[in-house]
Design a binder for these strands. Sequence first.
DNA 1: AAGAGGATGAACT
DNA 2: GTTCATCCTCTTG
Length: 200
Amino acid sequence: MLPVHFYTRPDVVQVAKDLLGKYLVTSFDGQLTAGKIVETEAYRAPDDRACHAFGNRRTARTEVMFQEGGRAYVYLCYGIHHLFNVVTGPEDMAHAVLVRAVQPIDNVDIMLERRSLSRLERKLTAGPGALSQALGISTGHSGLSLLDPTSNIWIEDRGEVVIEENIVASPRVGVGFAGACAVWPWRFRIAGSSWTSPAR
DNA sequence: AAGAGGATGAACT
DNA sequence: GTTCATCCTCTTG
């Protein structure tokens, strides 16, 4: 389990890069599933228009983003998809990292069943809605601590190092509404990974 | 109280 | 490449 100071650093862009190669793990009803994080995006209030907490506006939904780093922020997108984010930064800095894709690692059969798929293919966990479904994460888990030993969701360092040269940066996906912020290169992928989401 | 729109994915052509 | 499912959240009145 990653220590609290990994999450509370003030530079959310750096945390988004550092999450590449870490392992996102869930354990619900004794069913443990895990995937290696291969794609992330950074979101940063108050100056980032694409961030739900743009302008440091607090709502019931975004309140968790203002808490100290190390919690899950999960919200519903397009009425269907549950998108998993990691809250970062100290308290009152509404920063978060969206996990956009993982490589399936542990108990792939359980993930396949949750996604109603019969064989291992990229769409099992490529895309933020897809990986949340594969790992069993939903909006009901928003606000959960990733540091509490009794938590059902946490992130592990399994000793893998992704060097800067192997990180591909590009503009974030689906944020065309965000004006000038839309071109900020805050989407990060592990170079050469075949498990990242399709570019748009 | 009502309406608009979204950090997507799947199934089409 | 295009369409559309589907519902919560936020804005406006």
